[in-house]
C-alpha cells in the first residue's frame, strides 16, 4: 500500500530535450517536410525543438510527447507558410509502388492542393503521418468528431476531383 502511494505521488519522469530530439527528430522533420517543403523542413524542425526546449518546463505530461511536439511543429509550419510569398508547397511523392499506381500522382497532388487547409491538414495527419483520430484532435486542437467528419469530406472531395478518369 505504501508503495502504491509513493508511486502515485512520484513525479513523472523528467523529459529532456536531448531524448526528445534523438527519438522524434525524424518524425518531426518528415511532418514539417510535407507541410513546408523539403528545403525548409530542417529549419522548421529545428525551430520546433528550440520552442519545445523553452516550453518544456510547462509541459504537464497530459498528452504524449510526440503529439505535443507535433502541435508545436504544426504551429511552426503555419508560421513559416504565412511568411512565404510563394504559398504552401505541394506534397512530393516518392517512387511509384504497384499499389499506388492506380491513381495518377500528379493529379493527386493537384487534388490535395485544391482541398481547404483544414481538410488537407487532417488528410496529411491521418494518411501521411499516421496519427489516429484522437491524436489528430490533440495536435490540431479540434474535437475527434470534427476530425472524422473532415476526413470523410476531404476524401469525398478528393474522389470528386479525381473522378471519373483518375480513380479506377
Amino acid at each position: 500500500m505504501m508503495l502504491l502511494v509513493n508511486e502515485a505521488v512520484a513525479p513523472k519522469a523528467k523529459l529532456e530535450i536531448g531524448q526528445l530530439v534523438t527519438s522524434h527528430y525524424d518524425q518531426v522533420f518528415r511532418f514539417c517536410s510535407v507541410r513546408v517543403g523539403f528545403h525548409h523542413a530542417g529549419d522548421a524542425a529545428q525551430e520546433t525543438f528550440i520552442t519545445a526546449q523553452r516550453a518544456l518546463p510547462k509541459f504537464r505530461g497530459d498528452s504524449k510527447p510526440l503529439t505535443w511536439l507535433m502541435g508545436i511543429a504544426l504551429n511552426e509550419c503555419r508560421r513559416i507558410n504565412r511568411t512565404r510569398r510563394d504559398g504552401e508547397p505541394m506534397v512530393e511523392f516518392g517512387a511509384p509502388t504497384p499499389e499506388g499506381q492506380i491513381i495518377d500522382r500528379e493529379a493527386l497532388r493537384v487534388a490535395l492542393a485544391k482541398l481547404s487547409p483544414e481538410h488537407r491538414e487532417v488528410v496529411l495527419l491521418h494518411e501521411v503521418d499516421g496519427f489516429t483520430y484522437d491524436e489528430i484532435a490533440e495536435i490540431a486542437g479540434i474535437p475527434a468528431g470534427t476530425v472524422k467528419s473532415r476526413l470523410y469530406h476531404a476524401f469525398l472531395n478528393l474522389r470528386q476531383t479525381l473522378a471519373p478518369s483518375e480513380v479506377a
Binding site: G18, D43, F49, F93, G100, V128, V167
Partner: peptide
Amino acid sequence: ADFSALSVALKGVDPGQPYGMEQLQSRL
C-alpha cells in the same frame, strides 16, 4: 474501394531524408 485506393496512394508521399539533427543539437 476508391477511398482505399486514395489511402494507399497518399501513403506514397515522400518527405525526404531528414537532415540537420547535428546542427539542432549544437543550437540547443
